[in-house]
Amino acid sequence: SPSVSTAELDHLVQTISKSHLETCQYLTEELQQTSWQSFLQAEVESYQSKPRELMWQLCAVKITEAVQYVVEFAKRIDGFMELCQNDQIVLLKAGSLEVILVRMCRLFDSQNNSVYFDGKFAGPDVFRALGCDDLITSVFDFANSMCSLRLSEDELAVFSAFLLLSADRSWLQEKLKVEKLQQKTQLALQHVLQKNRREDGALNKLRSKVSALRSLCTRHTETLSAFRAVHPDVVRTHFPPLYKELFG
């Protein structure tokens, strides 16, 4: 792997963390202001009584908003914009939802098993109208497990960059270039974990999250195509175009 000095790793962690905070969509201070308010029972019931396609559209819009912040984050990662456009797109198509799922733990209240959504904190029951309760449960379980790691913002930042720069994505044209970037990012991840005096298994724990993320993203794609088989017109005319570009 590339030999990288500690000073360079410090600098890499700092720039990635700065990019993360500039593009994180929700600053934790903002969330504190909402005083972690959860939806009232009446509000929960109104989500539950929405037609399935409307709730799907709402969630597709929210995911698409989050994706745009992840694209901005990627553009700020050292070396990403030097990759060929094909690979930039391959990495974003495969990795943006993974980063969103990781970022979700910043917006997650594990005491109440709820996530910041559409203005307040929502439990899994808010999403019942989607008709994919098992996937929603797995997403909440993942958020809970990420929260229990209590990652700091700079650890989340570097782990997000590490996920985006996955050299094992199919269709990459310059695999070696991506591999080099990912190796450097992994060194930065080890560096920030050591600097924050994390116990030895921390990096392995994070790496074990990768397979869970891959599975969640695959299930999202499968659930979307099952939905589209039933409502092709809704997806074609009412889903954000960027969402369809990424997951269509």
Binding site: E72, Q85, E245
Partner: peptide, 14 residues
């Protein structure tokens, strides 16, 4: 293909 993603990548980092 990926018209919007291309566009977002071209825009100066907002």
């Amino acid at each position: 293909k990926h018209k919007i993603l291309h566009q977002l990548l071209q825009n100066s980092t907002s």
